[in-house]
Design a binder for these strands. Structure first.
Lengths: 337, 337
DNA sequence: TAATAAACTACAAACGATTGCGGGAACGAT
DNA sequence: ATCGTTCCCGCAATCGTTTGTAGTTTATTA
């Protein structure tokens, strides 16, 4: 079961040149104690034998790795894959590699993945937590072991770690206010799973925007469901059945908005003339659907970059205490409003 | 610059119990030489101190890691993030972790990433190559070091390694034949970068389908461009300008098809009545655009799974020689045809 | 020429785990 | 009393690097 891999080591090089491994090591690391002649010889042999240092051995010796653990719910979501892309970008340029794992929205798997990352002695971890994560004990384990931790988007509020988030409350508030200013008065909200901070805040933003603008709050216009297209479809369907027809909807995310739009179109109504719609996240998809969807851009690539920057700064002791970065969102106005 | 991390080791446990580290190791690995009483004591202390084995040390000792390197052009593409998801799924269940890197379609970066993966002594590598990769020397380096390699989708033909692909030729041939059977006669193809095998094969499939069905091949209906929406838009634009209007188009991928559709709609023409369209890949986006797009599903999640399975089998010596798996594609017929 | 500094290089320990081998203890059988 | 088993466990080497210390040249200076 061994990897058959046979790599050349500094000992191989040492033997050939009849010098000691330590000299080879110092030569390769350009240590001043080694004379240039020797360094050149070492480097030549190293190149000839395709020597590449064994990170494993280095890590063991130095008690430190250049690996960052990334755990997100699901890679296939636009938002998260863009974030990973941003993380990888920064990591790459700082000489770090990233280990990616997905929790699949499962708390148990999140815990197991955390353990796996600890075993790997990652230098730090970047996380967006699963929907079903209530306890943050596994993250506290990381901190107890002095492994730096950065949350992004879906954060764990009661853990002292750096965070990269958007202002979900304000983004939602602004989106709804935008609708109100456009003259819409019966605005529905399809909320996400409560218990997850970001969705709670979006809901609160909706409620407060309604209240502050002195629009009557109608309980029936506030629906709770999941995060998928089907949820949006069904929520809209139930509104139609209840004869409580809004003139605009604001949904927890883009897929839900799209599902709702589908149902609206099936009802023979026009968007935005009969019902306007705003989603959340600016999935690529929103710009090409017909009508294109007004939505809130969270700049996930940028969030990933910032999270990686924060983490690396913490790892390298350039950032001594947790910091929260709030990424500005942008309402992307399109045809659906 | 050290990670402050302080982890408990088997030595710590050994000291507490006044036994030797080797006994602790054997106890934890459930070795028959160790009596149950001792094992229990060891396990208790291990749990109390939150011991978790140092993968680094294990890897060094065993000269083998349980890490798989994954290199793809860009994570943010639907197709690749789904594939990664599939890879991670299989890897997770076999106890492997994955290191992800992106080449960003750059040959140089692909080479550097390969070196980084070798340094990490990954047990194997899964790759979809960049557009600009002509030489496969860096992959041969992997094989020389006996590091198993599996390609998926964009493969390197002249390297002897396992591959997971679709039959691009047949998929394209079938898609075009489908159009022909529907009665379309002036079918255009917007081809991708030649030099990349998969795109060449799709082109060939198009050409042969035209010829075998005795439809006149019109040179002006074959356009070469890139892979983005803008390329599709411009290709369509140039067709309009050349007054050579097709009654159907088959594009190298979905974004190109969408770009073309955009231009078609701008021209006031109807899809599929005036011009039909077929894309390639079944990006999520294609099902929600209006009109929804007929396309070819490549089952990227499944490709990722298969690639991971092949790789792990090779790593564990259960697969002795390279194998090529061809994933069946499926023409998803929607409104655009 | 001898003393001293400067320039190189080697030795050995360490990182944390695994594992072949050997040895002590306890026990029964002869 | 001797031998043989069986059961537990420890010693020490090993994986590939890094690095403090010490040692050997060589060059420099008095």
């Amino acid at each position: 079961m061994k990897n058959g891999a046979k790599h050349t080591t500094i000992i191989d090089i040492a033997k050939i040149l009849r010098i000691s491994p330590s000299t080879v090591s110092r030569a390769l690391n350009n240590h001043p104690d080694i004379k240039i002649k020797t360094k050149e010889k070492v480097r030549n042999i190293a190149k000839k034998l395709q020597y590449s240092p064994n990170t494993i051995a280095q890590s063991l010796k130095n008690n430190r790795t250049k690996t960052i653990g990334v755990m997100i719910p699901e890679i296939k979501h636009d938002f998260f894959s863009s974030a990973i892309s941003g993380i990888e970008e920064i990591a790459y340029h700082s000489g770090y590699t990233i280990i990616v794992c997905q929790s699949n929205e499962s708390y148990e798997r999140e815990v197991l993945n955390t353990i796996a990352l600890m075993r790997h002695r990652v230098a730090g971890v970047i996380v967006s937590i699963s929907q079903n994560t209530k306890s943050g004990e596994h993250f506290k384990d990381l901190l107890r072991r002095k492994i730096p931790l950065v949350f992004f988007d879906r954060v764990c509020d009661d853990i002292e770690a750096s965070k990269v988030v958007i202002d979900d409350y304000k983004s939602a508030f602004d989106a709804v206010t935008f609708l109100i200013n456009k003259g819409y008065k019966k605005i529905a909200h399809f909320a996400g799973p409560q218990g997850v901070g970001v969705y709670e805040k979006r809901l609160k933003g909706y409620v407060d925007a309604i209240k502050e603008n002195k629009i009557p709050f109608v309980n029936g216009l506030l629906l709770h469901a999941g995060l998928n297209t089907s949820d949006g479809y069904e929520s809209m369907d139930s509104l139609f059945k209840s004869k409580l027809i809004p003139d605009a909807i604001f949904t927890v995310n883009d897929p839900v908005a799209l599902g709702a739009c589908k149902r609206i179109k099936e009802a023979g109504l026009k968007i935005p003339n009969d019902i306007a719609a705003i989603g959340f996240s600016n999935n690529v998809i929103t710009s090409v659907v017909d009508p294109s969807l007004t939505t809130v851009d969270q700049f996930p690539f940028e969030m990933g970059r910032k999270a990686a920057e924060l983490l690396i700064q913490t790892i390298e002791n350039k950032l001594m205490k947790p910091k929260t970065i709030i990424i500005d969102t942008k309402l992307i106005v399109r045809e659906s409003t």
